[in-house]
Every structure is written in structure tokens, then in C-alpha cells.
């Protein structure tokens, strides 16, 4: 890797030729892309396309069958799960995993104690950091409640707060907006933008297309375990391959027919200008 690649604006994560096999099934194959420092990468794809598997590979929970994920040049597969966050990579889980008998604040404080800068924090400082984060994600009002008592949207917020408590450079967010209403989604997006502005690179898996488009700098589309598109949101969404993957080939064919009809009408209109234009 060149010296230029190591600057803060260079490549943070390099996913090269990653394949992941479960029994006879390849959940991922030949997936490669780079994630730039400071960017927001949206990861989309139909159900079962391998998004969560990819998140698990990137965060070191799974060791990829082929290929590798490197972070600032280090192979993540070589790092034990508990040390991944010390590299500066944190993630949330689609199925949230709070420590049920601890309070919300204690849950976040555990992250602050053992995360990347945890070694430098006292217990007290960890609780102070946890309180700050709870205010940022909007959970300060339930800080003393048992984590098992939280509503689903609040549990998602708690997941984000726990991940942020690890002081990450790269944050992987697995469907943190699922189940939120329109206002809550807006709030969540604002929070993520704010986190990104502080220099945290985001990889976002989400089903809500509007949310993903509004926040991402790059979008990567997975289908059946393969990367089928990558680029700026508008370009990617216009790609017929992506539309086909999402909405099926019949829909694409129909769109094609509609487009032909449209074009025919246009031609017809040109031949016979409307009366108003005369």
C-alpha cells in the first residue's frame, strides 16, 4: 500500500475477494470494495443477499472462507473478536443484545470501559462518557431503567450508544432504523450525520431506501452474495441490474415495455404536435 493510502482520506477498510460458505451454500462470493476514511457506505440488497453475513465478516465475527478484510493494512480475520473494537471498528447487531439485568447506563458504560480507549478510563469516567452518549442518542430519560424494559426503538438506540462507546473509527450499523417511525428515522439520520461529521466512517445496512440514499456517499448493492453495483446513490439506483435484483425481472421487462410505449408516444407527439402548440 502506498503512503497516500494511509492518510486520513485514504482507504480505511479493504474488502478483497471475500467469499463465505455455510455448508454447501455460498452466502458471499467474490465481494471486493474499498471503504474510504470518513465516507458513509450504504449496503443494500434484497433479503438473504448476504448483507448481515458481510457485516459479520467485516467485524471479525466470521472468518471468511476466501479473501480477506483488511483495516489499515491489518487482516481482521487474524484478530480475536474482543480485539476488533480495539482496532477502531465497532458494530451494532440486527438482533439487539443488551445485558438484560444491567441498567441502560451500565450497558453503555461497559463499552466505554473495555472499548478502544477503555484502558485509559476509570469506572467513573466510563459512566460519564456513557451519560454523554445516552444524551446524544436520546436515551438519557431511561438511563436508570433495566435494559430488558426498553421498547424496540430504544433498544436500537442503546445498540448505537454501546457501539459509540467503543470510540470507533469505523461504525457498522445493521438495520438500526427498522421499526422506527418517520420522525424517529429523521432523528436517527441526524445522529448518524453528526457521528460522521466527527470523523467516523459509517457502513450502513438498511432496508429504508430513502434513509440510505439521503445519508450515503457510496452505495454497494449485494444480490445472492455478489456485489452487483457500486457508486453514487443516484447512479446505483438507476442501474437496471439493481432494479432487477430488487424488483424482479418481470418488473424490469414491464418497465422496458413502458419505456418503449413512452418513446413511441414521444415520437407520435413529435409527428403530430399538440394543438396548443400551433
Amino acid at each position: 500500500m502506498t503512503a497516500a493510502g494511509q492518510t486520513a482520506t485514504g482507504v480505511a477498510l479493504r474488502i478483497s475477494d471475500v467469499g463465505m460458505r455455510f455448508g454447501g451454500l455460498w452466502a458471499l462470493s467474490e465481494v471486493s470494495f474499498d471503504v474510504e476514511h470518513g465516507s458513509v457506505v450504504g449496503l443494500i440488497g434484497p433479503n438473504g443477499s448476504g448483507k448481515t453475513t458481510l457485516m459479520n465478516v467485516v467485524s471479525g465475527v466470521y472468518k471468511p472462507t476466501t479473501g480477506s478484510v483488511t483495516y489499515d493494512g491489518r487482516r481482521i480475520a487474524d484478530v480475536p473478536t474482543h480485539a476488533v473494537c480495539h482496532l477502531g471498528i465497532a458494530r451494532t447487531f440486527q438482533v439487539v443484545k443488551p445485558f438484560a439485568s444491567l441498567t441502560v447506563r451500565e450497558n453503555v458504560a461497559v463499552g466505554a470501559m473495555y472499548g478502544r480507549y477503555g484502558g485509559k478510563r476509570s469506572t467513573r469516567a466510563s459512566f460519564e462518557r456513557a451519560q454523554e452518549l445516552l444524551e446524544i442518542v436520546g436515551l438519557a430519560r431511561v438511563a436508570e431503567r433495566a435494559a430488558s424494559d426498553l421498547t424496540i426503538p430504544d433498544r436500537k438506540r442503546l445498540e448505537v450508544a454501546k457501539a459509540l462507546a467503543l470510540d470507533p473509527d469505523v461504525l457498522l450499523l445493521d438495520e438500526v432504523m427498522a421499526g422506527l417511525n418517520a420522525t424517529e428515522v429523521e432523528e436517527a439520520l441526524e445522529l448518524l450525520r453528526d457521528v460522521n461529521r466527527r470523523g467516523v466512517t459509517l457502513i450502513v445496512v438498511e432496508h429504508l431506501m430513502k434513509a440510505i440514499v439521503s445519508i450515503s456517499t457510496t452505495i454497494i448493492v449485494l444480490a445472492e452474495g455478489r456485489k452487483i453495483a457500486q457508486g453514487a446513490p443516484a447512479d446505483v439506483l438507476a442501474s437496471p441490474q439493481v432494479i432487477e435484483a430488487y424488483l424482479g425481472s418481470r418488473w424490469v421487462k414491464r418497465q422496458e415495455q413502458l419505456r418503449i410505449i413512452e418513446a413511441d408516444r414521444e415520437v407520435a407527439a413529435r409527428v403530430q404536435p399538440p394543438e396548443a402548440g400551433a
Binding site: 467485524s59 480475536p80 474482543h82 473494537c85 478502544r116 467503543l166
Partner: peptide, 11 residues
């Protein structure tokens, strides 16, 4: 409470 979740938090 959850060994896996603990590992993710750096424990």
C-alpha cells in the same frame, strides 16, 4: 449476561 455481546464490547 451474554458472552458474545461482551466480546464485541472488547471484553
Amino acid at each position: 449476561e451474554n458472552e458474545e455481546a461482551a466480546a464485541v464490547l472488547g471484553i
